[in-house]
């Protein structure tokens, strides 16, 4: 009996027929770039993001048509490790082959209890260039990878820095996909 009722419900839904509709969706993918710094004085570390890994995490449907890739935000935090002497670090952030930082003089308090904070002072034009590269990631895996480099020092300078720096980049992808949908809706 319950099967009959369920089938009746489905039939009611189909009475008006179905049509193919193109739907737009937004998929959000937060990527965390991690840098372990163990250095006295100035430091430089690189995290490489690979297109294949990025697209695996994104996991879009095969028939998705990409309409927009955007960088929503950057957030940052630093966790002290054993022997760390620095209370703050100041870093510049670079992406890809750019020689200019997309974020400059970013001060990060080193504190285990602190959560992520929005990264201030972004350079709009360089963030837009990075966005273009990420769009290439999603559309045709080109480039194959993007290197994210940080350069910095403790503040005051010269202290031993032993920290784990996390930069969370939130990326959103707008895409379209066709689906069958009841036409009466």
């Amino acid at each position: 009996m319950k099967t009959i009722i369920f089938v009746l419900v489905i039939i009611l839904g189909c009475l008006w027929g179905c049509e193919t509709r193109t739907f737009t969706f937004v998929s959000t993918i937060p990527k965390t770039l991690e840098y372990t710094v163990d250095q006295t004085g100035a430091f430089s570390e690189t995290y490489t993001l690979y297109a294949d890994d990025f697209n695996d995490d994104l996991d879009l449907p095969e028939d998705a048509i990409i309409r927009a890739v955007e960088i929503e935000s950057f957030a940052i935090k630093a966790e002290p490790q054993e022997g760390n002497e620095a209370s703050d670090v100041i870093i510049d952030c670079y992406a890809g082959t750019e020689t200019e930082p997309f974020a400059e003089n970013v001060r990060i308090p080193v504190n285990l209890s602190l959560s992520y904070k929005a990264m201030p002072g972004l350079a709009s034009s360089l963030v837009s260039k990075l966005r273009d590269e990420l769009e290439g990631f999603v559309v045709d895996s080109n480039p194959l990878s993007i290197a994210f480099r940080i350069e910095g020092d403790s503040d005051p300078a010269g202290e031993r820095v032993h920290v784990l720096i996390h930069i969370q980049v939130t990326i959103t992808v707008g895409y379209e996909q066709e689906s069958e949908f009841p036409s009466f809706l």
């Binding site: 009746l8 009611l12 839904g13 739907f23 969706f25 927009a68 350079a123 709009s124």
Partner: peptide
């Protein structure tokens, strides 16, 4: 600042049915 926030779209239906 070079970033864009994308608000999710709706599914664009005119009526919600039930039987």
């Amino acid at each position: 600042e070079g970033t864009e926030y994308q608000f999710p779209p709706g599914i664009d239906i005119q009526r919600a049915p039930m039987a």
